[in-house]
Write a protein that binds this DNA or RNA. Structure first.
Lengths: 210, 210
DNA sequence: ATACCTATGTAACTTATGTTACTGTGTAGT
DNA sequence: ACTACACAGTAACATAAGTTACATAGGTAT
């Protein structure tokens, strides 16, 4: 039994289930930037996050991309399979936002455990709920906020996730995740700096008094 | 046993489950424009759609709104509860797009049946999947398409749902659902008419050669 | 130091979208 | 017919965002 599994999921799952997870799950440690799956890889598994954070991006076939949400400790993402199975014009990418530890569960276990363990059923439903809410939050941002507000929200989220006021990222990478252009991001960041909300540096941004 | 229930869900659910649904569910007939729920009403129930179509809208507290997706025959929407429970800045509205028949299921049955019936479990998971995919589709539209493309997609969707090339709607109402202004919609519609894709009339639009 | 690459700053311009304001027209009610 | 109102057409303008182009600064390899 991996102790970390018990620490993270012990309050949710009974021992029998924890043991099953331990037996059939594949433990993985990935470092920042690692691509967890892309266009159909890893489709047959569902990740349980032990520590770290995973960012989930939408990507259409023009190469345009957009940040959907982050998975954090204790999260899972049943959607990973959904989307890759549906396979339409667009795809989902999952990239480690920070160094992360996770357990990959074969999806065939999903149904089996749903029948056997009430706690697992709850967990999966709960996960869907969370994902749906994150998606709604994303839709709200894109539909109702202007780019400067989205940018600020994005930066605050980054700080929250990494628990670090220093964000190591380039303007270009922010532009990709918010699906806009580098020039626009540079412009708006400069405005935020003028307002005293951030401090700009090469390759990193320092968040102030949020 | 309501025959329509059996017709629509007989291939999915075993008789025992159909009977339970028939016993605890509330059969409802609503006509176009009926508001199925708003800000916390109907939270304790989950709709099973028998016929017709329901549109699901997101609404923030400035009164801004946005069409999320449609529910059609055979669909359900476990999300309805999710969002209303979460209760953040925004809310979800559900409005009958056409005359519809549906059965409202008390949500306490959801867990009970999930334990008892594999078919129900599948149905609920499937429903979540579908909802997530619809949401992704919506995100794609808002994030990657320009307003004229979104408008055309919207009109085509309307035609598909109602199986009718005549769309009875005002420019203002389209503007609400796509979260833009009436003038913008009028402008773009006129452009589509010039291109020969539609024909504009007072209170309705005729779709041509799609 | 030199060359080279990446990241950033910024101006100047284009385009899409949002806003305001006014017009005309069909429809319903009196 | 007259009035009132909802709906649609359109011009003129404002703003947000996207684009192109170029300058400069920091870092790295040689």
């Amino acid at each position: 039994m991996i102790q970390e599994l018990k620490n993270n999921y012990g309050h949710l799952f009974e021992d029998a289930l924890l043991n099953e997870i331990n037996q059939v799950g594949t433990f993985k440690e990935v470092s920042e930037g690692f691509k967890l799956m892309e266009i159909g890889n890893y489709v047959k598994a569902m990740p349980l996050l032990i520590s770290g954070a995973i960012k989930i991006l939408r990507e259409d076939n023009n190469g345009d991309e957009l940040l959907l949400y982050f998975l954090e400790k204790g999260d899972t993402c049943a959607m990973t399979l959904t989307c890759c199975v549906a396979q339409k014009k667009s795809n989902i990418r999952a990239i480690a936002e920070t160094d992360s530890k996770l357990i990959m569960i074969p999806i065939k276990k999903m149904e089996e455990w749903s029948e056997k363990y009430k706690s697992w059923r709850h967990f999966v439903f709960e996960s869907y709920h969370n994902r749906l809410n994150e998606m709604l939050e994303t839709i709200d941002s894109i539909a109702f906020l202007k780019m400067d507000e989205r940018l600020l929200k994005y930066l605050v989220k980054k700080v929250t996730i990494s628990k670090n006021k220093t964000i190591h990222i380039t303007h270009q990478d922010i532009a990709y995740e918010l699906h806009t252009s580098r020039v626009v991001i540079s412009r708006l960041l400069k405005k935020l700096e003028t307002l005293g909300k951030i401090e700009l540096n090469r390759n990193y941004i320092l968040m102030k008094d949020i």
